[in-house]
């Protein structure tokens, strides 16, 4: 692909004795949108903080814009936009001053700050609340303001850690729309999310992390093809544990998994499988055939589900 905007090798982050990130290699091209997926505690946020030139890696190397963030931190950060997982707005300041002050940190001229603040307030749908104290906003409004704030310096690389957590569906689509437009303008995006649909929609390429390591990497469709079957049959039985059905279902599919509330059969032809199951006399309370999704890949790779 084109120019590499971010490159990391053997990235490790240790907190005391605990190794949160255990050797990560990524290379991201300018204009790409790149995703980090993984269960809670996988090390996504720790990684994001290293690649946003905030926390120094315990070992390994990072180059962003061709610069080393440990020595050129300010220069790197001046070209980044960061949406942290936890909002960290200035609760003592108004909505407008939150944006304006952030612009000052980037040494932007006041006139530029005023213009961008107006535009970003509109984007965050907070123009009416501009003079209110941030403390009085709802959770989702604070989130929108945090996202808007990250755009004040028109970053080349935007790093978003679970940006849509806490947003209503409308605000979520508004953000997606904005991200598409930024991407069209050449901005590189790095996103973490727990919403698999979001990852499929937004990311050209993604990695799945687990226990501080990358366990898979690729385009969403490619990952699905590689790590899951074409279709999935979802069965619900009236039982306390779907694990009891694993043995019975095993002959019907190359791979069967039991979740607390349903059993999943990974097959090529879902309808045919379902037909066979009914013919065998099994009577699930409900049955559904669907295409494989990123969620299936995630469940498979992070071992959050049980048997293979």
């Amino acid at each position: 692909m084109s120019e590499t905007i971010l490159e990391a090798h053997g990235l490790v982050k240790r907190f005391g004795d605990f190794e949160a990130v255990r050797g990560i290699d990524v290379s991201i091209a300018r204009g790409e949108s790149f995703g980090f997926l993984g269960p809670n505690g996988a090390g996504k946020t720790s990684t994001m903080r290293m690649i946003s030139a905030v926390s120094a890696p315990t070992s390994g190397s990072i180059r962003i814009f061709g610069l080393d963030p440990t020595t050129d931190g300010p220069a790197v950060r001046s070209r980044l936009g960061v949406v942290p997982q936890e909002d960290n707005l200035e609760l003592e300041l108004s909505v407008r001053l939150n944006l304006e002050m952030f612009g000052r940190y980037f040494d932007l001229p006041r006139r530029v700050i005023r213009e961008r603040t107006r535009e970003l307030l509109a984007f965050a749908q907070l123009s009416e609340r501009a003079e209110d104290r941030v403390d009085d906003l709802s959770g989702g409004m604070k989130r929108r303001l945090t996202i808007a704030r990250a755009l004040i310096n028109q970053p080349e690389l935007l790093i978003l850690d679970e940006p849509t957590t806490g947003l209503d569906p409308q605000a979520r689509h508004l953000l997606w729309d904005r991200l598409y437009r930024l991407k069209r303008d050449g901005v590189t995006l790095i996103v973490t999310t727990h919403y698999m649909d979001e990852a499929e929609q937004l990311c050209d390429r993604l990695v799945v992390m687990d226990h501080g390591r990358i366990v898979a990497e690729g385009a969403p469709r490619a990952l699905i093809e590689q790590h899951s079957s074409r279709e999935v049959v979802e069965l619900r039985f009236s039982t306390d544990s779907h694990e009891e059905f694993l043995d019975v279902l095993a002959p019907f599919a190359p791979r069967v998994e039991a979740l607390p509330d349903r059993a999943l059969l990974y097959v090529d032809d879902g309808d045919a499988t379902l037909h066979d199951i009914h013919a065998s006399g099994l009577t699930p309370a409900s049955a559904l055939v669907r295409r494989s999704s990123l969620e299936d890949v995630f469940l498979r790779l992070t071992g959050r589900t049980l048997v293979d």
């Binding site: 300010p74 960290n88 707005l89 200035e90 609760l91 003592e92 980037f106 040494d107």
Partner: peptide, 11 residues
């Protein structure tokens, strides 16, 4: 408020 954390994501 973790306001300092935000400051540290700027230059």
């Amino acid at each position: 408020s973790h306001a300092y954390d935000a400051v540290l994501s700027t230059p």
